[in-house]
């Protein structure tokens, strides 16, 4: 009896080493072993009344449409405009994020780390894919993949460069390897030229990557360009 799934040959875009893109084969004879296996598990578990398909649909909807980095962006934007909130967030991020009701599954225990002109934080999980779901949603493929997980602990400056974040030589880098149930949220620096922006407007500058620490918050110009492009 196999103790593990026997894996067939697959294209490089389906491997873990190269992040997977565009391999949505859902029809007819192209069913892969993986697709068949998932369908088999679901059909057996539903048949045995062990799962309710409505529950599966709602779980997917929750994580595909309801939980995402907009949550974290609201937390960060508030920390930019409300010094008391920022202090609470840095002292006890779990309680401060819970004020928004943004704690829970895979965000039960939170720590917020702030970027400053002389310090930059970046988050990884070298052993698996730990990530603060409640404030950022489910992690992107690159975060879960070997190239990022292997390199950011040994060559963070190089990795940040690759993401377009060039730091001064004397900037202290702090890499957070999420090996426990505590999850880390990076508070990026507030961009210049946003003094009269409202909290809601500021939240538009806070990207997922900025809260992982592989990007800075968008500048007003970059936001305008992104909005024009979309």
């Amino acid at each position: 009896m196999p103790g593990y799934i026997v894996l067939g040959k697959r294209s490089r875009h389906e491997t873990m080493v190269m992040p997977e893109h565009h391999h949505d084969h859902e029809h007819g004879s192209h069913l892969s072993d993986t697709e068949l296996r998932v369908r088999a598990l679901e059909s057996l578990l539903v048949e045995k009344d062990l799962v309710n398909p409505d529950t599966l649909n709602e779980l997917v909807d929750t994580y595909e449409h309801k939980v995402g980095p907009r949550n974290g962006a609201r937390v960060v934007a508030r920390s930019w405009v409300d010094p008391d909130y920022r202090r609470r967030l840095l002292d006890d991020a779990t309680a401060a994020i819970d004020e928004f009701a943004f704690t829970g599954r895979r965000g039960e225990y939170m720590v917020a780390v702030e970027n400053t002109p002389t310090r930059h934080n970046v988050v990884v999980c070298t052993l698996c894919s730990c990530y603060p779901w409640t404030v950022l949603g489910l992690p992107p493929v690159w975060y879960k993949s070997a190239p990022y997980r292997s390199r950011v602990v040994i060559d963070p400056r190089g990795v940040l460069n690759e993401f377009g974040v060039t730091l001064a030589e004397n900037t202290e880098i702090r890499v957070w390897d999420s090996t426990s149930e505590t999850r880390y949220l990076v508070i990026p620096q507030r961009p210049a030229g946003t003094d009269d922006w409202s909290q809601d407007e500021l939240a538009n500058l806070v990207t997922r990557d900025a809260m992982i620490g592989v990007a800075r918050a968008l500048t007003p110009d970059a936001l305008a360009r992104a909005e024009a492009a979309s």
């Binding site: 779980l59 829970g104 039960e108 225990y109």
Partner: peptide, 20 residues
């Protein structure tokens, strides 16, 4: 018991308590 749609809010909001 089996996870039902009505339980999801609790499952997502409460999470898993690893802290003791």
């Amino acid at each position: 018991p089996r996870l039902e749609p009505k339980d999801l809010h609790e499952v997502v909001r409460r999470g898993t308590r690893a802290k003791v």
